[in-house]
Amino acid sequence: MSEVAPLRLLLVVAVALVDRDGRVLVSQRPPGKQLAGLWEFPGGKVEPGERPEATLIRELAEEIGVSVEEPCLAPLTFASHAYESFHLLMPLYVCRRWSGTPRGLEGQALKWVRPSALRDLAMPPADEPLIPFLVDLLGP
């Protein structure tokens, strides 16, 4: 039996920003990035020594120009997905309160969608299993 090299574990954190109409914000990965063109939940890589909530606060400010307070981040579920060269572990938080208007500061498109409409978007494989949890929480 041959040994399989262990995959590097990558910790990424994501958030479902939910507006007053129960819609969720997604962003489109810009050209030139891995998985370009796919829609995903805002977030990013957790830096060494950084807490997931601090990562979200930092990434949301950098990527979409909104300010979030840590008590407004509620953990919902997580994804665990083996890509070819790494294994992704991605906690998903829900946030209903922030300040500022979301806008794509890194050239990415943003859009608000109903939870059930997330199924119609091309999303990274790790994001897809998160959709039923949002539909259960928010309704279709």
Rank of each mutant, 00 (worst) to 15 (best):
S67M: 15
K111P: 01
P71T: 01
A74V: 07
C72R: 12
Q108T: 00
A109R: 06
V94C: 02
C95N: 11
W98L: 00
P102E: 03
P75V: 01
A79G: 13
A82Q: 12
A74M: 13
W112G: 11
E106A: 08
K111T: 11
L105P: 01
L76A: 02
R103L: 08
E106Q: 10
F86C: 08
G104H: 01
L76G: 04
G100K: 08
G100E: 14
G104D: 08
V68Y: 00
K111F: 04
H87D: 10
G100W: 13
L88Y: 05
H87K: 10
P91M: 10
F78L: 10
G107S: 02
A109H: 14
R97Q: 13
S99E: 11
P71R: 15
L88W: 00
P71D: 04
S99Y: 04
M90D: 15
R97H: 06
Y93P: 03
C95M: 07
P71N: 03
L105V: 04
S99W: 12
G107N: 00
S80P: 00
T101I: 11
E106G: 15
A82S: 06
C72D: 09
L110E: 05
P71Q: 03
E84N: 06
E84W: 14
E70S: 15
R96N: 13
P75T: 02
W112Y: 06
G107M: 02
V68Q: 13
T77E: 14
E69P: 00
R103E: 08
W112R: 09
T101N: 05
R103C: 06
W98R: 13
S85K: 08
L73Q: 09
G104S: 02
E84D: 07
P91I: 01
T101W: 10
H87R: 05
R96M: 01
H87L: 07
E106Y: 08
L73R: 04
P102F: 00
T101P: 09
F86H: 13
A82R: 15
A82V: 09
T77R: 05
F86D: 09
H81K: 06
A82P: 02
T101D: 15
W112L: 01
R96W: 14
P75L: 05
W112M: 05
L88Q: 08
P75N: 06
W98E: 05
F78V: 08
E106D: 04
R97K: 12
P75K: 09
R103F: 03
F86E: 05
S99R: 05
C95D: 03
W112I: 02
R96H: 03
A82M: 03
P71I: 11
L88F: 06
P75H: 09
T77P: 02
W112Q: 07
V94E: 02
E84H: 15
R97G: 08
R97M: 11
L110Q: 01
R103D: 12
L110I: 08
P75W: 08
E106N: 15
W98S: 07
S99A: 14
G107I: 02
A109G: 04
L92K: 13
T77V: 13
S80T: 04
E84S: 09
L110F: 01
W112S: 05
T101H: 10
Q108I: 12
W98M: 01
E106M: 10
L92D: 14
G104Y: 03
S80K: 04
M90A: 12
H81Q: 09
A82E: 13
Y93H: 09
